[in-house]
């Protein structure tokens, strides 16, 4: 049924820290790896070794640059995937009931056995989180690794989405955003986590944490406002050098 549930028992989702993300794409790669073998398999690739490789991905990493009025810039790496919205428009537009939101945990899924591949849900999603599989003729999307997070064959600490377990920088957290006492909810409260495009009325569950304010001109930059000078190539003194280095220095000088 593509009417949305009134409430869900949990609101499972991700918190992405834009201050930490280094844009390494590891989360996107591990997402592809897990899901190409899991519930949504295969995530078809078209022309994978050719000139224009293309294919289905659930997580994509963009890089943005911001410039303020003073001309100061920041680079922000920006992972983008399904936000498992509370008022998910992708669900209500679906004519078949293939697109649905689970009452138990709020995960938004596609039932590939009844999807007709009309693509309307991908038009309704503001975040580009749904990708059509041309070969299978059905819509696919992030499952929040539903086949991993409840998988009792895996050790407890592995029961998180693939993107979260793989992030080398610790930029991604997973948990119940409906529970104000959960670690993720506390993190969002402490860091001012926010919704993407709130004006679209989707009420995303996933939250993004903003980059911490940069203190320009303090320490990071030289007197002239540019990056600090490189170190001089030759040291003027042997202070702090080891015994052999000091001895060689004495012989040579």
């Amino acid at each position: 049924m593509t009417s949305l549930p009134e409430t869900t028992a949990k609101k499972l989702g991700l918190v992405v820290d834009l201050d930490i993300c280094v844009g390494c794409h590891a989360c996107a790669v591990n997402c592809k790896e897990w899901n190409a073998a899991g519930k949504s398999a295969p995530l078809t690739d078209y022309d994978p070794y050719g000139k224009k490789p293309d294919g289905v991905w659930f997580n994509r990493i963009h890089t943005f640059e911001t410039t303020d009025d003073a001309g100061q810039g920041q680079t922000v790496h920006f992972p983008r995937s399904c936000l498992h919205c509370e008022d998910a428009p992708c669900v209500t537009v679906c004519p078949t009931g293939a697109s649905y939101k689970r009452t138990e945990d709020g995960i938004v899924l596609v039932n590939e056995d009844i999807c007709i591949g009309c693509k309307l849900c991908s038009w309704a999603c503001p975040y580009g989180a749904r990708e059509y599989d041309e070969h299978a003729g059905v819509m696919k999307k992030c499952t929040l690794c539903v086949d991993k997070i409840y998988n009792t064959n895996l050790p407890e600490e592995s029961r998180v989405p693939a993107c979260v377990s793989t992030c080398p920088a610790g930029a991604r957290s997973f948990g119940d955003l409906g529970d104000p006492q959960s670690e993720v909810s506390k993190l969002v409260a402490a860091r001012g986590g926010y919704d993407l495009m709130p004006e679209q009325g989707t009420k995303p569950v996933n939250k993004y944490l903003p980059p911490r304010p940069k203190e320009h001109h303090k320490g990071q930059r030289g007197e002239d406002g540019k990056a600090p000078r490189m170190l001089a190539h030759a040291d003027a003194s042997t202070d702090g050098a080891g015994l052999i280095a000091r001895w060689v220095d004495k012989i040579l000088s």
Binding site: L18, F64, E65, T67, Q72, L196, M197, E199, P210
Partner: peptide, 13 residues
């Protein structure tokens, strides 16, 4: 609004 970075100034890909 799409990135939530608007408060940092102009946002460019």
């Amino acid at each position: 609004t799409a990135t939530g970075l608007g408060h940092l100034g102009k946002v460019e890909l």
